[in-house]
Design a protein around this nucleic acid. Structure first.
Length: 187
DNA sequence: CCCTGATTCGC
DNA sequence: GCGAATCAGG
């Protein structure tokens, strides 16, 4: 695969949207995340936020060759006309603690009309849950919340998810009900 | 362990 | 220009 115009555009778009290199690579197909990152750099759109509070973390990297002439001072950034973009809106998903502390959790299946078996399954696996924190969740970790967010008795399942799903097999079972008894719009 | 981006360097 | 290998960090 080569970097066609379209592919580059998609890359730019996704990168701009804050997608990770691996996600972009998956979307494009035929390339690895390394390829994507490499391209991103070559395109010159590496840093998405120069509001560097921490931009010095990477300053050293030459374990192999040290005889680096490094004749590229590059004092002034000629990025005058190459930046029509006002700025890179970086809306950080700051989720403080906007938790009602009540019990209005999302679809927290109130153990009701869900498949009894599925529930049993959940109870069973919850014992083996990795109990991850919000930040530790990835595309491959079950994002099923357990416990009360208002207390520290709250965690996410964290088991390996089922391909493509946000939850592990057990939780997928109770999360994605076919669509049956879900008509309680009584209020 | 999983993941992230950054950098280097042979091709 | 490309991207695997590697690095550094979460």
């Amino acid at each position: 695969m080569s970097w066609t115009d379209e592919r580059v555009e998609l890359l730019k778009k996704m990168w701009g949207e804050g997608q990770s290199a691996s996600q972009i690579a998956k979307e494009l197909g035929g390339v690895t995340r390394n390829a994507v990152i490499g391209k991103v750099h070559r395109l010159g759109l590496s840093n998405r936020a120069t509001t560097g509070t921490k931009t010095e973390t990477k300053a050293k990297a030459a374990p192999k060759a040290e005889a680096k002439p490094k004749p590229a001072p590059k004092p002034a950034e000629p990025a005058a006309q190459a930046a029509p973009e006002p700025a890179t809106p970086k809306p950080l998903p700051s989720r403080k603690q906007i938790i009602p502390a009540g019990q209005p959790l999302p679809p927290q299946p109130s153990a009701n009309e869900i498949s009894p078996e599925a529930l049993a399954k959940v109870s069973a696996i919850e014992k083996k849950a990795k109990k991850l924190t919000l930040m530790e969740l990835t595309e491959r970790t079950c994002k099923w919340p357990v416990g009360d967010p208002a207390t520290d008795d709250f965690w996410f399942c964290g088991l390996t998810v089922q391909q493509g799903k946000p939850y592990c097999e057990a939780h997928v079972g109770v999360a994605f009900q076919p669509m049956s008894s879900r008509r309680d719009r009584r209020r």
